[in-house]
């Protein structure tokens, strides 16, 4: 049997919306590829850019952030997340990582179809793209970390003045 590339897909699903949404898919006994692993998270706004880049560097081929979107229970968290992902995607573009490996979307507690569509689309796109370029991802990870830590210097310079 020919070796077929099986992408490793990570779904970061919000406790309030997307995680129960993914549960609803299972409760309806609808199916999606088993290479999709779901981690629950209070709000994906807690992740710095380097977290995502590290995940790619460790071999995750695609990340779907299944957020609450406009139903986000936390004040302003979604906008902060969206801004973070914008910057990350920009960095991926520059660093030679396909931006389809990252997708930010909103999944509600009963969004069964939307969930299925998102994961199957990502799965088929990643199968076309092949495995993630881990060394490119490592570069981006290190660059993101450097920038985050540099922020410290900027900030300290500001408070000193």
């Amino acid at each position: 049997m020919a070796f077929e590339f099986e992408p490793k897909i990570l779904v970061l699903a919000t406790l309030a919306c997307a995680y129960p949404g993914a549960d609803a898919v299972g409760k309806a006994h609808l199916e999606y590829p088993s290479n999709v692993s779901i981690l629950r998270v209070p709000s994906p706004a807690l992740f710095p850019e380097d977290f995502f880049a590290r995940a790619y560097a460790r071999g995750i081929d695609g990340i779907l952030i299944a957020s609450c979107g406009s139903d986000c229970p936390y004040k302003g968290a979604y906008d902060k997340l969206a801004a973070r992902i914008d910057r990350l995607v920009q960095r991926m573009k520059e660093g030679g990582l396909e931006i389809e490996r990252m997708r930010l979307t909103a999944i509600c507690t009963v969004c069964i179809k939307a969930f299925l569509k998102e994961v199957t689309q990502m799965d088929s796109r990643l199968r076309e793209l092949g495995p993630v370029n881990r060394s490119a991802a490592t570069e981006i990870w290190q660059a993101s970390l450097r920038e985050l830590q540099a922020g410290e210097i900027v900030q300290m310079a500001r408070s000193a003045s």
């Binding site: 209070p42 709000s43 706004a45 807690l46 992740f47 710095p48 229970p73 936390y74 004040k75 302003g76 968290a77 902060k80 973070r84 985050l148 830590q149 540099a150 922020g151 410290e152 900030q155």
Partner: peptide, 13 residues
């Protein structure tokens, strides 16, 4: 604290 973690993402240390 509502536990959203927005602060976590920006901490340089």
């Amino acid at each position: 604290c509502f536990g959203c973690g927005a602060c976590v993402a920006v901490c340089p240390t």
